[in-house]
Design a protein around this nucleic acid. Structure first.
Length: 492
RNA sequence: CGGGGUGUAGCGUAGCCCGGUUAUCGCGCCACGUUUGGGACGUGGAGGCCGCAGGUUCGAAUCCUGCCACCCCGACCA
């Protein structure tokens, strides 16, 4: 492990890549574009999963599991969805290998073992799920179906980056079926709200809730709701999406039900997902040049205790003290570990825990034993204070809440000061290049204008905010009339 | 898939142009000792199919050909 991280100012992208690897979150694997999520990174993902899973269940959803493979004929049923994902699908064509007669010790695909029908490795599961739902739904009494699955999906991306874009990623995908349009829309909006609440309260990432324009919409959706976050380099990151699918999938898979008036109708659908990309959002929102900064809610260990000792006897006394603290913190629901490794010196431990973003660090040495104190250090502000042992546990508890709140406030302040209202295209370009962040501007509502702006500036419309206010104006590019502003940004 | 670049120990690298002793240095690793309140120091040690396969040559990390992998820039994207 080399000592210093590349600074954000020097090379933001390099900083990110190094941080992910050095903080032991993930690394590239032998499989092109696929990552290995290491235990520390996975522990953070598990924290996210646990909270999201709780929230899904609280809103009435159940978990289930559907197959990894989708027969090609099912996959192509919903045309727009199929077309949207076709270019990035991995496809299974054979089911057997054999010894290669021309290359001893090597295997080859058995040409005799070609599948009758190719299997698409799911890039998303609407097809297989709606084909299944068809058998489950006859009456309005079978509705709604509120299901989520935790799974991996594969999208054969050309250029990948750890967590932000990998060929295989972990996610959850909710797939619901409803008797009415209104109910499905309400569900899609509700789940987008759940994502926003999770991002803000749990990850301390402020997000803007909005609706996608037609060109940014999920393939096969009628409307795509999203939460958009702003990273420290001024680029936007789509952190979650929730789709109102209308009756598109019900029609494609012929899923009809009899409503309470005895009439046949197609079922209304939603789907919604967040992925391991959230790890990327987390890293790029809070971390600094010393490494990861974790909000207490997501830290595998919220507190770490580093003993400072000269003799074995001292270490034993400190360990005892530490274990008492750990026990007390545990009763308050605070996770704390003791770093009693004798193989590393305190300075190295300090640096490592900072790199890995542990929110609070307690150092205990002889000086503290004599004075009945400890040294308490915050990761987010890098400040230290001496705390009386008697007050320690309650101080820690309060401080963790403070850190969680302050991380959010800090990110919120950054985000809010990086939304710029712009009314002409020259300023649009200048702001995008110099100040960066979101640009709030009028748009004439056409895909052509959106496309043109993208070509000229690389900025896309991230969303039309849910709370957008009606305001007559002129399109920043064409000057045509517009009724509200939309948010543009360069995005990940 | 188009344009550019790079492959030498676990990581980062020197050497390559101009072929010639035992392939350089740093980090990391191992052992012992001294250390331990911000990334310790000393001494000793281990670790290399020089990306892969051919070719040229008395001799190849170095020259030639082919292949593979990775990185950067474009088109694609949670």
């Amino acid at each position: 492990m080399s000592k210093n991280l590349t600074s954000r100012a020097e090379d933001y992208s390099k900083w990110y890549n190094e941080l992910v690897v050095k903080a032991d979150l993930a690394e590239n694997s032998a499989v092109r574009g696929c990552m290995v999520i290491k235990p520390y990174g996975y522990a953070i993902w598990e924290k996210m999963q646990a909270e999201l899973d709780r929230m899904f269940k609280e809103t009435g959803h159940q978990n289930a599991y559907f197959p990894l493979f989708v027969p090609k004929s099912l996959f192509e049923a919903e045309e727009k969805n199929a077309e949207g994902f076709a270019k990035e699908c991995a496809v299974v064509t054979h089911y057997r290998l054999q010894n290669d007669p021309d290359n001893p010790g090597k295997l080859r695909v058995d040409p005799e073992a070609k599948l009758e029908e190719e299997l698409v490795v799911r890039p998303t599961s609407e097809a297989i799920i709606w084909n299944t739902y068809k058998g489950w739904i006859q009456s309005y009494r079978d509705l709604p179906i509120l299901i989520n699955q935790w799974a991996n999906v594969v999208r054969w991306e050309m250029r990948t980056r750890l967590f932000l874009r990998t060929a295989e990623f972990l996610w959850q995908e909710g797939h619901t079926a409803h008797a009415t349009k209104a109910e499905a829309i309400a569900e899609a909006e509700q789940m987008n709200d759940v994502y926003a609440e999770f991002a803000e309260n749990f990850m301390a990432i402020p997000v803007i809730k909005g609706v996608k324009t037609e060109s940014e919409r999920f393939a096969g959706a009628v409307d795509t709701y999203c939460i958009e976050a702003l990273m420290q380099d001024g680029k936007a990151l789509q952190a979650g999406t929730s789709h109102f699918l209308g009756q598109n999938f019900a029609k494609a898979f012929d899923v009809k039900f009899t409503n309470n008036e005895g009439k046949l109708d197609h079922v209304w659908a939603t789907s919604w997902g967040v992925s391991t990309r959230l790890m990327g959002a987390l890293i790029m929102t809070h971390s600094d040049d010393k490494g990861l900064v974790l909000p207490p809610n997501l830290a595998p260990s919220q507190v770490v205790i580093v003993p400072i000792y000269k003799t074995d006897e001292q270490l034993e006394v400190i360990k005892e003290k530490a274990n008492t603290i750990i026990k007390e913190l545990k009763t308050l629901g605070v996770s704390c570990k003791l770093d009693a490794r004798t193989t590393h010196r305190p300075g190295a431990k300090f640096a490592q825990h900072e790199l890995q973003g542990v929110p609070l660090r307690i150092a205990i040495g002889q000086r503290d034993l004599d004075n009945g104190t400890v040294e308490l250090a915050r990761r987010d502000t890098l400040t230290k204070e001496i705390v009386k042992m008697d007050n320690l546990v309650s101080t820690v508890e309060t401080l963790l809440k403070t850190i969680q709140n302050e991380l959010f406030s800090k990110a919120l302040n950054f985000r809010d000061t990086h939304i710029t209202e712009v009314d002409d295209f020259e300023t649009f370009k200048t702001v995008l290049e110099s100040k960066t962040g979101f640009i709030s501007a009028h748009w004439d509502g056409t895909a052509e204008t959106e496309q043109k702006i993208k070509e000229l500036t690389k900025a896309t419309i991230r969303c039309i905010p849910m709370d957008v206010k009606k305001e007559a104006g002129e399109c920043v590019f064409t000057g045509k009339p517009s009724t509200n502003r939309v948010l543009f940004a360069k995005a990940y």
